[in-house]
Design a protein around this nucleic acid. Structure first.
Lengths: 333, 333
DNA sequence: GTGAAAGCGCTAACAC
DNA sequence: GTGTTAGCGCTTTCAC
């Protein structure tokens, strides 16, 4: 039996309980102790009226919204899905909520979306492909920001990942399996792509080999599929392929199989991210765990620390962990 | 060069431009036209001061936040990921943002989380496992709500999916392939599970067969894996299995293969949802497309319609579409 | 412990 | 077109 509810305010409660609005406010926020009599009347009045405090009005005064803005590149990418999962968990634990924006890998909209987001939240977690020079406007948001990648030149706290080491480890793993001709199928749109190239290249160089580098136009399984034939059917077929991420690897493997290649006998494949689905394909995907969910949790944690005044502009680097499964095997030829 | 910025308000702009605050407000909101002179001064003043309007203050007066609350059961489930993807897209298009809460399949927290969400948003999109009786409190949220499943007894607009038909189609498909002994591996925690059972059962009944029903404790690939052996190695091995969703099917297939079964020769498997990863496993998963992304888009659309006064308490039912791939095949025995 | 009063930054009538 | 004014619902000194 709902009628056009005329909005119960703190004043209605005060009137019914026979106290002042200040008292109600303090009671609702648990800012102070009260005489049992007043406390009881307050409790009853709130109950009877079904009063609910208006968080907007509160926020306007306190300047706090208990909301964290999260801007990511593509929620459908399991890596980001898990970042959000972790962030949501940590946020709820501290009584925060996430204001989510999926920028859909669109750099043009990114900036204005984030700028519109900023005034509505206490702090932001941002994943962007913009270079550090291109991202300096983030300093002017007037809100604490945590970036989801290593940042060096800007005073922005960040949760990074050792991309160079990750690719280095993958290359070493493949070298240990006897592979010599190794290719890297990257995604040039990502700023971290270069770090990964460098890591793989360094590992190979140490053994006296060179890295073949290929590129995709987006970090998706489809792009991996499309890139496959030109790598495996070209004049220079590699023995093993390191992919920018698991999605690209998944697509690459699918297409490789349909081109008639046996995996991993004919070609070893590895990805990065450790998305859940790598376990369900055949062969099961060898990958590097990037701890996506933990990344989200840490980002929220760091932001909350910053909001609490612990102004730490440091960074955290998550360490790669190799997950060996069946898509990489000893080189036989 | 950031200093403790003393918050530029509409009043500062008014002072600098030599106009009233009302004028500034109207200018910022484009509510009215102005003399070129004033317009220019306004523009300059805002520029010079770096004024940014405070959306909280605005919201408090207008009662609109341009935010849509989205409460889902598990963002890591690709079905929901895609719902959010679609919702985000439609929301941004209309200049709304999503306030996301992942309730993590936790009915206990669900209610309080949603109630806390409600006052901060213009409307809500909710996915819940609560029965209609258990969900009647949603009517008291005092905000428009769109539920992501069919609702009949409650006056809540909803985007539904014809679950009965989906399972019916899958069963028919398997019957057409010559299967007679068909099992359903469900998730009893979902209210829609019964519809799916009914659909499959009806299809089989029409041909004079009975449905074997099994259950999992959660709608995940792991649960599918765990359920596999008791179905395939029990005394009553089915020729084909319809799974509650694709994740369960993925897990089931993985375990079936490691138990030594050949798919689809020894057992056909099908899921529901059409998650992207069904294409990358082997055999590729036959499934029913639930149009998850479209569901998110429609939900936002419906909510925005409701906010615009088009108070439509109707519902939309999305139609199932069978996606035949390689995990289902003609029965040979 | 409790209350009075002064706003937070903005919009929405309504005058002029 | 532009200005005046009265709040939105709440928190926060600062008296008592």
């Amino acid at each position: 039996m709902k009628s056009a509810s005329p909005t119960i305010t703190i004043r209605d409660v005060a009137a019914l309980a026979g106290v002042s609005v200040a008292t109600v406010s303090k009671y609702v926020n648990g800012t102070q102790r009260f005489s049992p009599a007043v406390e009881a009347r307050l409790k009853d009045a709130i109950e009877e009226l079904g009063y609910r405090s208006n968080p907007l009005a509160r926020s306007m005064i306190t300047g706090r919204t208990r909301t964290i803005g999260v801007a990511i590149l593509d929620i459908a990418n399991p890596h980001f899905t898990n970042v959000v999962k972790g962030a949501n968990r940590a946020a709820l634990e501290h009584d925060y909520t996430l204001l989510l924006v999926d920028t859909e890998e669109n750099p043009a909209r990114e900036r204005s979306l984030i700028q519109a987001l900023a005034p509505r939240v206490d702090g932001l977690i941002i994943s962007s492909r913009a270079s550090e020079e291109m991202a300096s406007w983030m300093l002017e948001l007037d809100k604490p920001v945590v970036m989801l990648r290593r940042v060096q030149g800007l005073a922005i706290p960040n949760i990074g990942f050792d991309n160079r080491l990750a690719a280095y480890m993958l290359a070493r793993h493949l070298l240990n399996l006897g592979h010599q001709h190794i290719a890297y199928l990257g995604f040039g749109g990502a700023t971290i792509n270069d770090d990964r190239i460098e890591g793989a290249r360094d590992a190979l160089a140490e053994s006296g080999f060179a890295l073949d580098v290929y590129d995709t136009h987006e970090p998706t399984a489809q792009a991996g599929e499309q890139a496959c034939s030109r790598i495996l059917l070209g004049p220079n077929r590699p023995q093993a392929v390191i992919c920018y991420n698991d999605l690209i690897a998944l697509g690459f493997m699918k297409e490789a199989k349909s081109l008639g290649f046996r995996l991993p006998q004919d070609v070893s494949v590895a990805g990065i991210d450790n998305v859940p689905y790598g376990e369900y394909v055949e062969p099961r995907l060898t990958t590097i765990d990037t701890q996506s969910q933990k990344m989200g949790e840490l980002a929220v944690q760091k932001l909350i620390d910053a909001l609490a005044g612990r102004a730490d502009v440091g960074h955290v680097i998550l360490e790669p962990r190799l997950v060996v499964r069946d898509s990489t095997a000893i080189h036989t030829a």
